[in-house]
Design a protein around this nucleic acid. Structure first.
Lengths: 339, 339
DNA sequence: CTGAAAGCGCTAACAT
DNA sequence: ATGTTAGCGCTTTCAG
């Protein structure tokens, strides 16, 4: 391993001068710089990032903490796209990404306290987590890809506007004449579930329609067909009257729901309408193609990363909280309510 | 930031003793250890990994270099699963993952030379790349998720057995009476393309059937519908007779191909059979469900990571080269050849 | 079992 | 414009 010291000796200059050259400091005579660069190339010298980081206090690494089991995350093609946006931005800034999946025992602050990263991005973080709140209190540079509290919270976040997304899909279904609209909101510990419920209620409130509480239900994300079947028989089909439209928690659940309903003899969308979320490729590949509320997933990742870069450079400032529009993509899985 | 030195002072012991405690060295009196642990907890001390790594020469980080544009990789739900396997294994070993997407200017050895990682996993690496070969020559701990040379090469790799995968799907189509079987092999610079061609040829050779060379074609992965359409009109539909079966380069291309063919009035599988690769969720979600040659993607990732761990601990040894079985999953997109 | 001293390879602060 | 001197926070000798 060639060290800076060896380069300095070989070039006949001090270590600091070599350091200046590799850091592009302007205070070096062009001639000296040229000479040093030559020696660096000759010796194939690579600065040791570890030593650099230790001395400077900067790692040039950003941590991505994913609050998901590994098994869950790869069932659903959403994460790919998010990661795409994040890495695209970090690449431009010449930063690297450290990826870690969280479980119950993992600490959110550890990676930062151990000086392994300069900042953090947190995906799918749960509501009301004390450890997470510490990140905010200690002003550790971090951006959340979801809201970690429903009320005001001085955290930085980039998230999709689930309230208006839910409102617009509910509006659309109400327009089509559906009045028994099932909402599979998502897990209770996620902000998005509560925000969807809020949007759903707003659509009803606008028209002075009463909301049937039993039609709003927290449910797991990424359910397989077997789980969807149980949910139908154990819950939704117990209701009277039965829902004529389902707002599924995500595209995968929508696809599996359509499959189950079809198997039970229902025609989609003539008998039942089904809506997905995220507008992933699943929605356009399934038959019928699935109406979905699209997140700007790639942009979400990119924006979160660039927001983090800003925060890391400007020390403290007021919370950056960015709401990205959601878009209703109407396809073939929704239609007028049956008589 | 609490340092080891401060802990030592607070505990009234030397730095080395504290160091021994945090490294679980046996040579510490139980009483001393207990006391030191107490002080560590009290002060909420976290060892600085940077300093540790610099002094010890170990980073506890593995680099994953993905030879894909960010745009490509998130079009296709294969990467997710691979990443799942890799992280599952690394998690167990308490190692972290540094993720980097490669472009033409990126260096494969840099991350290692800069002491940022202890070892590397390389996904989708191209054939015959000089820089890549350097990794092998210099005995840098690394595992490839594909073969980087078709002939013998002393590199460590974990890959699916594309030859027998291609052979079995070709066998199957020949059994069904297809004799004009189009093979969309994949990019020329990828080993998998050449291996597929080899398997395809073997199936024909076994029966003494001649291979029509124009039916074997390199093609891009992850093509969108528009690109698939062009490929059909510009190439495959120029052939006479037209193919009655297509072995697509991957599930996404298979799905898009089915869509295009359907739009052109062909019935699948009555008029044309289509096969995909990787057995991703796309294959089971599309209509008709797609016959696919499945990779054990999760296992591939997991095995690559565990192989790397072995290599990193045992210094040098003979090349580890692991071939994972592929499985033919017959679904509804393939059927007997038309008369 | 414990400790003192010497680095790991670099940068920062202060010279000159 | 360049060099000198201390560290960054830890681990590793090597002594006791």
């Amino acid at each position: 391993m060639v060290t800076l010291k060896q380069v300095a000796e070989a070039a006949g200059v001090s270590m600091k001068t070599v350091s200046r050259v590799i850091n592009n400091s302007p205070d070096v005579a062009p001639k000296t710089r040229h000479h040093v660069e030559h020696v660096i190339a000759e010796l194939n010298y690579q600065p040791n990032q570890l030593a650099r980081s230790l001395a400077s206090g900067k790692t040039n690494v950003v941590g991505l903490l994913v609050h998901h089991s590994v098994e869950e995350m790869f069932k659903y093609p959403f994460f790919n796209e998010l990661l795409g946006g994040i890495t695209a931005c970090l690449n431009q800034a010449k930063l690297d990404l450290l990826l870690r999946f969280m479980d119950k025992n993992s600490s959110y602050v550890e990676l930062y306290d151990q000086q392994r990263v300069d900042g953090l991005i947190l995906a799918n973080a749960p509501l009301h987590n004390a450890d997470l709140q510490k990140l905010v209190e200690r002003q550790i540079p971090c951006v959340f890809l979801s809201r970690i509290a429903l009320e005001n919270n001085p955290s930085h976040w980039v998230d999709s506007d689930f309230v208006s997304g839910a409102e617009s899909i509910t509006d659309y279904l109400l327009e089509l004449g559906h009045c028994h609209i099932a909402l599979m909101a998502g897990s209770e510990h996620l902000a998005l579930s509560h925000l969807r419920i809020q949007g759903y209620r707003q659509a009803f409130a606008k028209r002075d329609y009463p909301v049937t509480e039993s039609l709003i239900r927290h449910s797991r994300l990424f359910m397989e067909t077997a789980q969807v079947r149980h949910m139908l028989t154990d819950y939704w089909f117990q209701l009277s009257p039965r829902p004529t439209a389902f707002i599924a928690s995500d595209d995968l659940v929508a696809v599996n729901l359509i499959r189950e309903l079809t198997q039970l003899g229902y025609r989609i969308p003539e008998d039942v309408s089904v809506v997905g979320w995220d507008n992933t490729m699943l929605a356009s590949i399934a038959t019928p193609q699935v109406t979905s509320v699209g997140q700007q997933t790639y942009k979400k990742g990119f924006t979160a990363a660039s927001t983090l870069l800003e925060i890391m450079s400007n020390a403290t400032q007021s919370p950056v909280q960015i709401k990205l529009d959601m878009e209703l993509i109407v396809r073939d899985s929704t239609g007028p309510a049956p008589d």
